[in-house]
Amino acid sequence: MAAVCVDDGYFEVGDDGRLTLIPGQQGRRQILYFKTPGSFTFEKADYPWLARVFVRVQAGGGGAAGARANANQVVAQPGGSGGGYAERLIEASALGATESIVVGAGGDAGTPTVDGGDGGGSSFGGLCTALGGRGGQAVMSSGAAPVCYSGTSGPLAGVGDWASGGGPGGGAFRLDGNQGQSGEGGDAMMGHRGWQRSSSGGGGAGRGYGAGAAGAFARDGDSVNGTAGSSGIVVVELYG
């Protein structure tokens, strides 16, 4: 007669004699990724075995302004800041029947004389939240005299077991009517900042999730649009 040994840390025999898994002892069983900006709903009843979730929330990064320069002049703009990040381990008993999920969009690109848009915040209910990055402003006017402008401050920390704001966008400077440099974008926990420019064009776009865009640069009559920030993401790891 065959015999089977099982680990009683993971299995139990019910009153009906059936061998079953012990709830909450199986480790990570599934990962949900929410990458598209917008609102979603998490339904606890869809996972009857759920013991806890580990949530990671990345907000959207700030967009950057464009630039417009007169003949023989330069305009360079600061970069947008990176979005904030938060994470939290949450017991299933602390979850509502439904929890709203929000994925923040990256901030809009500015036109040649308009600021970049702020990034959107991301969240898992009110239990884990992160604030969006700030857009880079169109602060430098056309000219040839040396000038510099401060960068763009990053957002404050949101809510979580561990939470932080995003990285600041870099400042911009002009040396004369031909040379200068725009500001880089701000880093995010889950994304890398956009690269700065010293030739005409929109600033570099961020990579990954939540990074800020670099500011635009214009020289000698050029007119260029800015760059959008990177959108955020929400990752939900399910344990049961």
Results as ranks from 00 to 15, higher is better:
Ala163Ile: 00
Gly132Ser: 10
Ala138His: 11
Leu131Arg: 07
Gly158Met: 03
Asp161Arg: 09
Ala157Gly: 08
Ala144Val: 11
Ala138Gly: 10
Gly143Ala: 10
Gly160Val: 01
Val147Gln: 07
Arg134Cys: 06
Gly167Tyr: 02
Gly158Ala: 05
Tyr149Gln: 10
Gly160Glu: 01
Pro146Trp: 02
Gly135Tyr: 05
Val147Ile: 11
Ala145Asn: 14
Gly136Met: 09
Pro155Phe: 04
Val159Arg: 15
Ala130Trp: 00
Gly154Phe: 00
Thr129Pro: 04
Ala163Pro: 00
Ser164Cys: 09
Leu156Gln: 15
Gly135Lys: 06
Thr152Glu: 03
Ala157Pro: 01
Gly158Val: 00
Pro155Arg: 10
Ala144Ile: 12
Ser164Lys: 07
Cys148Asp: 14
Val139Phe: 09
Arg134Pro: 00
Val159Cys: 06
Ala130Phe: 00
Gly151Pro: 05
Ser141Gly: 15
Ala138Thr: 03
Thr152Ala: 07
Gly167Trp: 02
Gln137Pro: 01
Gly133Ser: 06
Pro146Ala: 05
Asp161His: 12
Pro146Val: 04
Leu131Asp: 01
Thr129Val: 12
Gly158Lys: 02
Gly135Thr: 00
Gly160Ser: 06
Gly136Ala: 11
Ser150Tyr: 12
Val159Ile: 14
Gly154Tyr: 06
Val159Trp: 07
Val147Pro: 01
Gly158Trp: 02
Val147Ala: 08
Thr129Tyr: 05
Ala138Leu: 09
Thr152Cys: 04
Ser142Leu: 15
Ser141Val: 15
Gly135Asp: 05
Tyr149Met: 10
Ser150Met: 11
Gly136His: 09
Met140Pro: 08
Tyr149Pro: 02
Ala145Leu: 13
Gly151Leu: 01
Gly154Glu: 04
Arg134His: 13
Ser164Phe: 06
Gly132Pro: 00
Gly151Glu: 03
Ala145Gly: 13
Cys148His: 13
Gln137Asp: 08
Leu131Glu: 04
Gln137Val: 08
Gly165Trp: 07
Gly166His: 04
Leu156Pro: 00
Trp162Leu: 12
Gly151Arg: 04
Arg134Gly: 06
Ser141Ile: 13
Ser142Phe: 14
Gly133His: 01
Gly166Val: 07
Ala157Val: 05
Asp161Ile: 03
Gly165Ala: 02
Val139Pro: 11
Ala138Met: 08
Gln137Ser: 10
Gly167Gln: 03
Gly160Tyr: 02
Leu131Val: 04
Pro146Met: 07
Gly136Ser: 12
Ala144Tyr: 08
